[in-house]
Write a protein that binds this DNA or RNA. Sequence first.
RNA 1: GGCGCCAUGGUGCAAUGGUUAGCACAUCGCCCUUUCAAGGCGGUAAUACGGGUUCGACUCCCGUUGGCGCUACCA
Length: 487
Amino acid sequence: MAPASKPRVRFAPSPTGYLHVGGARTALFNWLFARHEGGTMILRIEDTDVERNKPELVDGILAGLRWLGLPWDEGPYFQSQRLEMYRAAAESLLAKGAAFPCYCKAVQYAGADAIVEGEEGAEKAARIPSCPCRDLTPAERAEKDRQGLTRAIRFASPRSGVTRFEDAVFGPREVQNSEIEDFVLLRSSGLPTYQLSVVVDDIDMRITHIIRGADHLSNTPKQALLYEALDAPPPIFAHVPLILGPDRTRLSKRHGATSVSSYADEGFLPEAFRNFLALLGWSTGSDEEFLRTMDLIDRFSLSGVSRTNGIFDRDKLEWFNSQYLQKLPIDELLPYVKAELQRAGLWREEWDGAEREWFAHTVDILRPRTRLLPDFATWSRAFFSDDFDYDPEARKKFWKDPKLPDLLGKLADALDALSDWNHDACDHALRALAEAEGVKAGLLINATRVAIVGRAVAPPLFETMLVLGKLRVIARLRRALPFVSPE
RNA sequence: GGCGCCAUGGUGCAAUGGUUAGCACAUCGCCCUUUCAAGGCGGUAAUACGGGUUCGACUCCCGUUGGCGCUACCA
């Protein structure tokens, strides 16, 4: 047994788009694995494609990882700053004869689909193209160089035999080398392709486990070949299944919100998001679902990763969020609510000081009804501000009875006369009035709720009244009277 | 087209070759109830299809179908 060194993993996004849910889950799996194993997670930005690369997106990706709560241990490294290393590797491969210069124009060699579209007979022969430049003699190469032709460097794939590698999720794999084309390592621009840079970096950074999307599975044999050609031991690969949209196609912009930041904006809790993401393509093997981050770290194992592509289920995500909104220790939740109220311009500093207990209690009675953070500032607004309006639907539903203006006025008086402001006192006062007036308590309760919080949705009335306080309740009741008259 | 991967309710996951195929989301109903939630209880709903192997197959093998991926001087 080799001395067990701690695993080193990396998350390697390319800045061609924002951090989407698929990338987020890959990052999460890497992070969970590293934390579980006591290893290291490296962040590397794969920005070798100058055409598509958008440097300004890097900040967004970093912000997404921070919001998700996935701090990396090393990096970020940028491939664009390590170009010399890739060129040197390509040169050494060239020197060894494991690679060769290619003088073809890029368009001449643009993918199998283009090549196959010929006559029927030609199809089979054209399958795995092998670049003719591979067989050029030294003299011919010298001649091409003299002509000043631009050259790319291609890997000279073995023409027979098989290539094997180990995948922690998909098991041992092997492919026929005849299926592997002479892929480009260094473009004619001198910039490396993904295949080269990823292997060179993973070797240089001593990566032990490559956890990435299954879309890379088919290309892994090429990389296994490169490890061999570079005299480096291959790492353990772990390809995780893809996340698809509800229409079973790859997640993309047309599926609506796919960027992590949009979920942050919508008011999801990062930990709920993590819990949801972790269970998409991985399970503990049991039925447990509510797993806090410590639990996830504790149980995470590559052996629990599924091989089946999964569909992003927004409903389940929301369910997880509502679970966290309800089950989190109140002190953990408060900062999020505070931030939400600040965002809505409703925050008051005393809720962090003298009235902290009031704030905690109010949030506590509100939270069973919340699903997203903004709920605290929208339908719960009246709990944090005197400036609120009456929901038209609620008015329509609970302010129908023509006796209501009169009744609510009397209720305000009765409440005003109370010497003690507590749940039972309010309860008794309201019910006594209902009985004296010959109406159901429910009529008064529902109408009062709309009057004091403006909505049909709120915690139980007397708890609401306690939290609002006597003065507010009475004032709001009287303020509502002119509006209660049914048309 | 070629090569490869995958296949359990609508969705996400369970089930040493032997269970009435389990859990959760969604959905429907009931309970609770002062609105809305939450919570509790229950219902509808799945092993893609066809062949094998086996006393016995969701599980192993083959084929078909379907989905996905790769097949770029993208990553």
